[in-house]
Design a protein around this nucleic acid. Structure first.
Lengths: 174, 174
DNA sequence: CTACTCTGTTCCATATGCGGAACGTTCCGT
DNA sequence: ACGGAACGTTCCGCATATGGAACAGAGTAG
């Protein structure tokens, strides 16, 4: 955490590998030098905004995701999610994630703490959400809210990546 | 908007002035050169992460606030919004905003292009949403979707700031 | 009017981020 | 065993971000 550049580099590497992209490929797509990307990922440079911006696009993540002092829950092969926003209120904590589920993959989530509520807004892709014992079809524009203190799972169809905004509200203290 | 560095510069200047800080003072506190800050604010440099990080601290804002990809309406008495995510698909463009409406303020939005759909997930605060001729009460956890090709407005109650995630889907190409 | 301190900008030497071209490895098809 | 192509790293010339100093202007105290 000492240097923001170092953590950004680690984050870039994590996201890139979770996408199955090679360093050379990403450098080519982003239009930057391989040397730049290599030393950036290993934390040996502190990159320019332009460089980070060039990388964020092809990775499909908002620039915020590379810079934030927020946590990145890196994917197993099935899913990765980026925390876009955290907010501590008097009686609850609200988190906003951008979730990406790979085609054909399923993400099972264990039960959260009692009282936790979760909401999903699908941006693109199709799939299914299993929650509260019901099965909800997911498609672009679909919204669903459920109690997350029970196990639940999202899965993406084989057609394409499922991208969604996930809002999790946890009651109680920060 | 072309260069992320340029918008970051403008944002730094806006926040600095809203804090009543002089350029020299901020440079001294942040431990960076006045030249760096001057040319950064005027958009003539594209800064390093380290430099932005050094500035964000004394300004009292998260690094994210300086880097956000789109226009942040600072100092508008009614509202500010940060674009968290953009995504161009084959037949539509999806944008995710974090919107803050100040207590008692109202944000009126003109009609967007035909076919644009908008969704709101309220994170905290209370207020009212006027859309499609109806009035929807807003409270934490509330979700609403509507056709945004007509004028609409959100307003926050006097109780507190209204914070919400706003998803806008625009059909057609970028 | 002078002297001082503050403002923000411009000039400059230095440090360093940058991309292209090397490099050593590993893997795959022949 | 042998190309050949991919991987990621290191080297190097060039471009540029950096901070210190010099600068002009504005405001104030003497």
């Amino acid at each position: 955490m000492s240097s923001p550049g170092a953590t950004a580099g680690a984050r870039v590497r994590a996201i890139r590998e979770s996408r199955g992209l090679s360093l050379s490929a990403l450098a080519a797509i982003a239009g930057i030098g391989k040397a730049t990307l290599s030393e950036l990922e290993s934390g040996r440079r502190n990159p320019t905004l332009d460089t980070l911006y060039a990388i964020a696009g092809p990775l499909g993540v908002p620039l915020v995701a590379l810079v934030a002092e927020s946590d990145l829950v890196v994917g197993d092969a099935a899913l990765d999610s980026v925390r876009l926003h955290v907010q501590h209120d008097a009686d609850s904590t609200t988190e906003v994630y951008l979730v990406r589920v790979r085609p054909g993959a399923t993400r099972r989530s264990p039960a959260h703490a009692p009282g936790v509520r979760e909401q999903l807004v699908v941006l693109s892709g199709e799939g299914t959400l299993e929650a509260e014992g019901a099965s909800v079809p997911l498609a672009p524009g679909v919204h669903h809210a459920w109690a997350a203190d029970q196990p639940h799972a999202y899965s993406a169809s084989d057609a394409g990546v499922l991208v969604a905004v996930d809002v999790i509200v946890t009651p109680g203290i920060s």
